[in-house]
């Protein structure tokens, strides 16, 4: 994708995945955030696509590499590669289609099965502009998000509502998790609770602190 620039300067690179049922608007959320574009005529996603955008978090430049995939069950066969190294996820449902909200639980289970326990997850109710067709109440979604300990936001890729907020919030939270971990390790590595480490700069890990680097191969 043309948005990818190698010469961009950044402090952190985070891999974020977009997941959720087919047709909920994952690709348009991605294009709205990375290119400020929205298309009513967008095609279904085949396989995997990605785009990047850098934002400022506190005094650092955080580059988000956002992966977008086909929602069809069939493409789940390639998920382990898709999730590998992800430190953030937007789990998207369509507020006008209740079934896409019902499936959120399955997506969450799969996500958690494939990623680090520190992954930052945001539940995203997209197409919030279609208020008159709303089939999932904000309260239900909020309650679910609280129960599952995820963030939650309703967005509209079409009206550009909350898209920026959703991604920025996820990236900021990741930044906090990662820098807290760095701090913890600096202080007393033994104090890190087991299973709580966030893997940065690992072999197969895309997300990384740039200075540590994943490209020293």
């Amino acid at each position: 994708m043309a948005a990818y620039r190698a010469d961009e300067d950044y402090d952190y690179l985070y891999k974020v995945v977009l997941i959720g049922d087919s047709g909920v608007g994952k690709s348009n959320l991605l294009s709205r955030f990375t290119r400020n574009e929205f298309s009513l005529e967008s095609k279904s996603t085949i396989g995997v696509e990605f785009a990047t955008r850098s934002i400022r978090v506190e005094d650092k430049i955080v580059k988000a590499q956002i992966w977008d995939t086909a929602g069809q069950e069939r493409y789940r066969a390639i998920t382990s590669a898709y999730y590998r190294g992800a430190v953030g996820a937007l789990l998207v449902y369509d507020v006008t289609r209740h079934v896409t909200f019902e499936n959120v639980e399955r997506w969450l289970k799969e996500l958690r099965g494939h990623t680090d326990s520190n992954i930052v997850i945001m539940l995203v109710g997209n197409k919030a502009d279609l208020r008159h067709l709303c089939a999932v109440s904000t309260e239900d979604a909020k309650a679910f998000a609280e129960r599952e300990n995820t963030f939650f936001m309703e967005t509209s890729a079409l009206e550009s509502m909350n898209v920026e907020n959703a991604f920025t919030e996820v990236l900021t939270q990741i930044y906090h998790v990662v820098s807290r971990k760095a701090l913890d390790i600096g202080g007393d590595p033994a104090a890190l609770p087991k299973g709580q480490t966030i893997n940065v700069g690992g072999k197969d890990d895309v997300s990384a602190v740039k200075k540590v680097g994943c490209c020293n191969a």
Binding site: A6, A81, V206
Partner: peptide, 13 residues
């Protein structure tokens, strides 16, 4: 550019 992984799964990307 951090993109290349020798694993086949990443190749479509």
């Amino acid at each position: 550019e951090c993109l290349w992984s020798c694993s086949v799964e990443n190749f479509h990307f």
